[in-house]
Design a protein around this nucleic acid. Structure first.
Lengths: 192, 192
DNA sequence: CTTCGTTGTCTAGCGGTGCTAGGGTCGAGT
DNA sequence: ACTCGACCCTAGCACCGCTAGACAACGAAG
């Protein structure tokens, strides 16, 4: 028994190592640099070991996405907890969202851009993703306004933040004005 | 002279063929399926011929993006021309934007997601991209509201549409509610 | 009309990718 | 002490973007 348990522990530890290494490599050099060979070399195992933990590269991205979503939810809740009043909460939320994306671009991509094989917006959506959306909903739902479903409002505000994030990071929007763009969204979309 | 001219014509014709074929293949099977080998086979030339027209795959994506941006500007202007009043124009614009993205997903990606080696938001930005932004600006600038630069407002509205588009297409937002999301943006962001 | 040189295209190949088949090693359980 | 199964590695597949170098076709010059 004890031997099996030790092996299971070691296996789980190695899986964490894979995910952490993939994330690290992605943040350092971008997801294109995360190849199965490089990843295998960094964890000091051969390539096929990766496939005994994950079906393929896609699932590794998915694992990073789930980890990231959990952290992002925490970050957003921490930011909104300190804010006073609905609009201030929304503002704090938006800034936290953009800050997370800027500090963890590769993780952000794993969650919101890349294909990690995850189900979104469904019943079988993984808990971390649901929870990240819930974190958005907690602050945005209260400013949806009459006749607008909180969920729908949250989706729209989220999409706007996502658009600003991705267009800015790909060089399609000049980064200097980000704060003014956010203020415009926070001023106009919510109903307080 | 005439011989050289004929060769130039043929060369230009072949370049159009490459771009059209890349676009077609991308729309049919996605950009991942657009490999230099497949593309070469479809135009019935060898791979190196592609490299006598474009520096690499990236530039081919860029060429598709420019072509698409031109078409998109035309589509948006056509949609807004028929609309009556500022808010109706914005609504028509938004619907035209999303319709273009839905009908030409690969082209949309070439313009707004992939790296086509193009400069955005700068003086040396290619004319088609500037013009597509100008088409947005024409309808959105007039509803920016007091104290908000038309350009900034356009960027924000555009980013919101982009967010809705990409999140929906990647399965992160359920597609059924798109129309309601657009209406929310059109109701709240502009100042009429 | 022949020769030369340029222009254009092709074949072949480089180093990389994600992924997998199959063999060998090593250690746990009898 | 031996068997057997779990585990991991080497090697290789088919594909990728891209390029070097051979070769053919053709206009210009003698």
């Amino acid at each position: 028994m004890s031997v099996q348990e030790r092996k299971q522990r070691e296996r789980a530890e190695r899986e964490r190592l894979i995910v952490a290494t993939a994330r690290e490599l992605a943040e350092q050099q971008g997801w294109d640099a995360v190849t199965t060979r490089r990843l295998a070399e960094r964890i000091e195992y051969s390539q096929p070991v990766l496939y005994s933990h994950f079906r393929g590269k896609r699932e590794i991205i998915g694992a990073v996405a789930l980890q990231g979503a959990t952290e992002m939810a925490v970050a957003m809740r921490a930011a909104t907890a300190a804010a006073d009043g609905p609009r201030a909460r929304v503002h704090a939320l938006a800034r936290a969202y953009l800050a997370f994306a800027e500090r963890n671009p590769a993780v952000y991509d794993a969650i919101f851009q890349l294909d990690g094989g995850l189900a979104y917006a469904r019943e079988d959506t993984p808990e971390p993703l649901k929870d990240a959306f819930a974190a958005l909903l907690e602050s945005l739902g209260e400013v949806a306004g009459d006749g607008v479903e909180p969920g729908l409002f949250t989706e729209v505000f989220w999409a706007s933040l996502h658009g600003v994030t991705t267009l800015t990071r790909s060089g399609r929007l000049p980064p200097e004005e980000t704060e003014r763009r956010v203020r415009l969204l926070v001023d106009r979309l919510p109903v307080v």
